[in-house]
């Protein structure tokens, strides 16, 4: 995944939370990269560290959490030790984020116009009228009808799907190089989700923005992403091109996740469930974190597996990759 178009390269990122109950290794040695105009799907279940990874990349990890190690190379520049003043120039201008709940991210007492214009004026020295024009165009781009009127509205006057569009329009308004979307469609209905995916896909294609789409839903990533990173207990367990990973998963966890998705060719049959549940990050087992739930685990799994690349453009963290085609 290297090349001239590399937007973001995260190397050996570790974000830990220093709580009274102990150190939580929410992100533990995570590496991935995203090219210009590409979509990376960051998939994991709750507690896998996918959201904290996103927050680390945009510098929003709050105490007691801290990025303790690793590099975040954004357009070649390391962000890991960036002072807050520098972050402010970057955030919203070059890197933007879309959150899960648009009701929480829009200010309920300000008009949409005020919030969007503020986002423009914070980073650019242009007139208010011009900023307003840009906000209107951005709303139009995400398919909001009569954007001129809608700019004057308050967030509560929008439906959930419309609010998420406003959030997306705001994220893309300064033409960022990278947008991080954290489960932006999880709270939405199917038809509205499809609309949002459509807008996000279009914007990335048109603007060359790289997109990190964080989700627990493999089916959304299957349709949207170019590359996929599967996270488990703070680590990337498998990464690669979307088709390669979904058609032929090498890690038992990825394979289990795919088997867990109900779909029509499995109708009425028992799903291949993964037994047990995600271990607590406070109390991680030694060795491979997936060991206790894995059907292939043996004595070798007592030591933590490193990253290997059994195939080109694939990375996997497992002692027993499923190299035999698993059907």
């Amino acid at each position: 995944m290297t090349g001239g178009g590399l937007t973001l390269a995260v190397e050996n990122l570790r974000t830990h939370f220093f709580t009274r109950a102990g150190v939580v290794r929410a992100v533990d040695d995570v590496s991935f990269s995203v090219d210009r105009g590409q979509v990376l799907g960051l998939v994991g279940e709750s507690g896998s560290g996918k959201t904290v990874t996103g927050f680390s990349v945009i510098g929003l990890v709050d105490p007691p959490g801290r990025v303790v190690d690793g590099r975040i190379l954004f357009n070649g520049r390391d962000l890991a030790a960036l002072p807050e003043a520098e972050w402010r120039k970057l955030r919203g201008a070059k890197i933007a984020m879309i959150f899960q709940d648009p009701m929480m991210t829009l200010n309920p007492v300000l008009r949409i116009e005020t919030q969007m214009v503020e986002a423009v004026l914070a980073h650019e020295n242009i007139g208010r009228e011009e900023a307003r024009k840009r906000a209107r165009d951005a709303l139009g781009q995400v398919g909001i009808p009569s954007p001129d009127e809608r700019l004057r509205a308050y967030p509560h006057q929008f439906s959930g799907g419309m609010r998420q569009r406003v959030a997306i329009a705001t994220a893309f308004i300064n033409r960022p190089d990278l947008v991080i979307a954290d489960e932006p469609t999880t709270a939405l209905d199917v038809t509205i989700q499809a609309q949002i995916l459509h807008e996000a896909q279009k914007l990335c294609r048109d603007t060359g923005t790289a997109l990190i789409w964080i989700t627990h839903d493999l089916t959304v990533v299957a349709g949207l992403a170019d590359h996929i990173c599967v996270m488990y207990a703070g680590r990337v367990v498998e990464a690669g091109e979307i088709d390669a990973v979904l058609d032929r998963p090498l890690h038992p966890y990825t394979s289990g996740l795919i088997g867990s998705v109900p779909s029509r060719n499995k109708r009425g049959r028992e799903l291949d469930q993964i037994p047990g549940m995600t271990p607590s990050l406070l109390n991680m087992p030694s060795g491979c974190a997936f060991r206790a739930r894995c059907g292939h685990a043996d004595a070798a799994c007592d030591s933590a597996p490193g990253i290997t690349a059994p195939m080109p453009a694939r990375a996997i963290r497992c002692h027993h990759p499923l190299l035999e085609p698993a059907v």
Binding site: T191, Q193, A194, Q195, L197, H198, Q201, D217, L218, T219, V220, A222, G223, L224, D226, I242, D243, L246, I258, V261, S263
Partner: peptide, 13 residues
């Protein structure tokens, strides 16, 4: 969205 549907063009109702 389906697992076997890749690089989809979401058209949206």
């Amino acid at each position: 969205p389906r697992l076997d549907q890749r690089h989809a063009k979401f058209s949206a109702i």
